[in-house]
Computed example of a mutant assay.
Amino acid sequence: MKELTRSQRENVKQSIFPASLFIVFFIVLLLMSGIHTGLIVLMHKLERNEIMQVIIPMVYWAVIAMGLTIYTSIRMKRTYEMPMKMMAEATAQVAAGDFSVYIPPRHAADKLDYLDVMFRDFNLMVEELGSIETLKNDFAANVSHELKTPLAVIQNYAQLLETTELTEKQKEYVEAITGGTNRLASLIYNILKLNKLESQKILLKPSSYDLCRQLEESILGFESIWEQKNIEIEVEMEESAVIEADKELMEVVWNNLLSNAFKFTQAGGMVSLRQFSVEDAVVVEVKDTGCGMSSAVLKHIFDKFYQGDTSHSTEGNGLGLALVLRILQMSSGTITVSSIEGEGSIFTVRLPKGMEQEGKEQNI
């Protein structure tokens, strides 16, 4: 979309309520007043009583006032209110990260008014923002992809060093290298995964499977962590709950939510996993007794690279919950969070029993 030239902007109508409209109103009111005078003269000739001479003009002007009010209301709604409402909805979509928004023009190119120009500038801004977002995602994906090979070499040599005889200091260095490369590998994996999900390059592979069994396997995968931190585990779920979803992607959801729960729960705390079914959905709750979150942190927890508690920044990369949200959006699911600082958090995932995945509908 091209920006308007100076000459085009100079030709834009500066008012959406032209002077001709008010002239029409003036003429109509003059005509109506003339008709009113005619009514008075007619009733006088017909020798109507005084009450009728008062009531009829009042009813006449009431009808006129109602007509003009309705016409003005409709004109204002079509000309100003509806375009502004459209603009407000589009702005909200952009604020939520949707850069595919487009507001269609209201008039032809030679009859633009200042609202048309505002919409055109808005569309241009969104287009530029979308281009920047695409460039940013492509840059992150390309850099991450290029880092995979040298990172694999470092990891391989670090693993080879671990098999040789080393001093305690050397072992400490090797462990630091291994830990750093593992965190970097996790970051690269998450960036590439999230980029593919956002650009819809991953095909959903929905299948019917037992969610309860998957949840059991996921929580057992953290057994060493809960034993090390002496965390109490509480599990409550049905014997079986069959859903239709992409099993591999849903495993990413549960692993991220449980990983966060164990990460932020202090030694001696408790993590609970609850699953139950309602009429049209399966609900999973992951609750912890960790540090909790403030309302300011809750607003940003699903943002990429955001980490509210920096004391655990070396244990993650701020992409886990962004991945969770995108996967659930693709799977027609939802996630909500409630948290109290110092008491813990509850993440609630709701999945429809009969899913209509985004992948099925859009063939991504």
Rank of each mutant, 00 (worst) to 15 (best):
K2C: 00
K2L: 03
L4Q: 01
T5E: 07
S7A: 12
N11F: 02
N11E: 13
K13C: 01
K13N: 06
L21A: 04
T37L: 14
I40K: 14
L42A: 07
M43G: 05
L46F: 06
P57H: 01
Y60G: 04
Y60V: 02
Y60W: 10
A62S: 14
A65T: 12
A65L: 15
A65F: 12
M66V: 13
T69K: 08
M76Q: 10
K77M: 09
Y80C: 00
M82P: 00
A88Y: 12
E89L: 13
Q93H: 09
V94C: 06
A96E: 15
G97C: 11
S100A: 12
P104S: 10
R106A: 07
R106Y: 04
A109P: 06
Y114W: 10
D116Y: 04
M118E: 08
G130R: 09
L135D: 05
S144Q: 08
L151F: 03
A158R: 05
L160R: 01
L160A: 09
T164W: 00
K169G: 09
Q170N: 10
Q170D: 12
E172S: 15
G180F: 02
G180W: 04
L192K: 11
K193F: 00
L194Y: 00
L194T: 02
N195T: 13
L197V: 08
I202D: 10
L204I: 06
K205Y: 00
S208M: 06
Y209S: 02
L215E: 01
L215G: 01
E216P: 04
E217K: 14
F222T: 02
S224I: 11
S224E: 10
I225N: 06
Q228N: 13
A245C: 08
E248G: 03
E248R: 13
E251C: 01
V252K: 09
S259W: 03
F264H: 15
F264A: 00
V271M: 05
R274S: 06
R274D: 06
Q275N: 10
S277A: 12
E279W: 00
E279H: 11
A281H: 04
V283E: 02
V286R: 03
D288R: 09
T289K: 09
G290H: 04
S294E: 07
H300A: 09
H300I: 06
F302H: 04
Y306T: 08
T310D: 10
T310Y: 05
T310E: 12
T314S: 11
T314L: 07
G320R: 05
A322Y: 03
R326E: 12
S332N: 14
G333E: 02
G333M: 01
T334I: 05
E343V: 01
G344M: 07
G344D: 07
F347L: 14
T348L: 03
L351Y: 01
K353L: 15
K353F: 00
M355P: 04
G359S: 13
K360N: 10
